[in-house]
């Protein structure tokens, strides 16, 4: 849990390996069997040159990070804003999900913590960018 957060603090880093098996399992879980994700030959011939991970899986990763930072408070007031998919994630990528606290404001007994979030590949290329707003208490 994020305690006494202040502007400029780095968020924890979550690391994931992306492979075709994980993409296939997300397809089954979400019901999204778009050929770009699961059909290797089709995807090879596409403008992506190979399969890519589902965008919503990245949203699940961002939520994992927010739950690690803010616990149950995330599901009772958290906001993910302006989440944009700026580059595809592919099998073989190792990604990091993290961010930075941009401001903390006191509102009543709570602290409102604003963060910039991003997912990046091992090369440093960002795949997803966004912002979050979460309420937390000074004790948390």
């Amino acid at each position: 849990m994020l305690r006494n957060a202040k502007s400029g603090d780095s968020l924890p880093v979550i690391e994931k390996d992306i492979d075709q098996d994980r993409i296939n399992r997300w397809a089954k879980l979400s019901g999204d069997f778009n050929s770009l994700h699961v059909d290797i030959e089709f995807a090879k011939a596409s403008r992506f040159g190979g399969t890519i991970a589902h965008g919503p899986m990245s949203l699940a990763f961002l939520n994992e990070l927010m739950m690690e930072c803010f616990g149950k408070g995330w599901v009772t007031g958290g906001k993910l804003l302006e989440v944009r998919f700026v580059a595809p994630t592919r099998p073989g990528d190792k990604i990091q999900i993290t961010g930075t606290v941009t401001s903390v404001e006191k509102k009543g007994n709570d602290l409102v913590c604003n963060c910039d979030l991003f997912i990046q590949k091992q090369t440093g290329e960002k795949t997803v960018v966004g912002k979050s707003v979460a309420r937390t208490s000074e004790e948390n």
């Binding site: 778009n34 050929s35 770009l36 965008g55 919503p56 949203l59 995330w74 599901v75 009772t76 007031g77 958290g78 906001k79 993910l80 804003l81 302006e82 989440v83 944009r84 998919f85």
Partner: peptide
């Protein structure tokens, strides 16, 4: 096929 998810926003309440 061919759609793009450009942006998404979530607010969690409960």
């Amino acid at each position: 096929p061919g759609g793009v998810l450009a942006k998404q926003e979530f607010e969690f309440h409960n």
